[in-house]
Amino acid sequence: MTANQPEISVERLSVNYGGHHALKNISFGFQRGQLIGIIGPNGAGKSTLIKAIMGLEKFAGKVEIFGKSIKQMRKKISYVPQRSSIDFDFPVIVEDVVLMGRYAFIPWYKKASFKDKQIAKDALEQVGMTEFAKRQIGQLSGGQQQRVFIARALAQQADVFFLDEPFVGIDATSENIIVDLLRQLQSEGKTIFVVHHDLSKVEKYFDHLLILNQELVGAGKVADVYKPEILSKAYKGSITLFDSNDNMMVVSN
């Protein structure tokens, strides 16, 4: 049964903020090559969960990625922050942001090599933002900014990706480009976790889900867990479900 051992496993993970449980006893496991949505209401601890997995929050429990601790795997992990956490007035242009994805690989006493710059350039090409390379990041639209940060994650050539609310406030073109990219990464065997707030399009975006409300309410294939009884348990009446046989409609209040 070793083949079925999860390659990314989280066991009994809890996060405490001064006596208040942000996350309680979360356990799950996934194989590589999956596109996993993390959903749940506001304050469910979605961002906290990915930050804990990345080792940015103090937590109790155990996280293993390909059998190793997060500290040994840092370079294999890339992170796309929530757009609202970034200061878009910062004096930095698009190509500089993407090159940041290579920083972990450049020794501190050296300059960025031609190869690093080429990797950054290719990443920018992949998200269709090459023509904006010299723009200051604040001059881009929300979707374009999101694509730049995804290019930065691509430049890290990581195996595991964490994206925090990548679809918030972006245009349809950017959304399609990002979804296609995530699918492509998945087909290359990468594992992708996406924090997602909006319940619409969940089925379109993901094939696996983690449904969260401080505790883990459901984990598994979308078809198995994206169900009214599980969702209403997570959202505790803050949504209305319209269920008509195969079609389910969810409205958040």
Binding site: K51, S85, M100, W108
Partner: peptide, 19 residues
Amino acid sequence: FYRPLLLSTFDPTMAKATG
């Protein structure tokens, strides 16, 4: 330390995530 300073100023979360 230009690069670490730039990254930790611009995006501290990613800076921490890369160690």
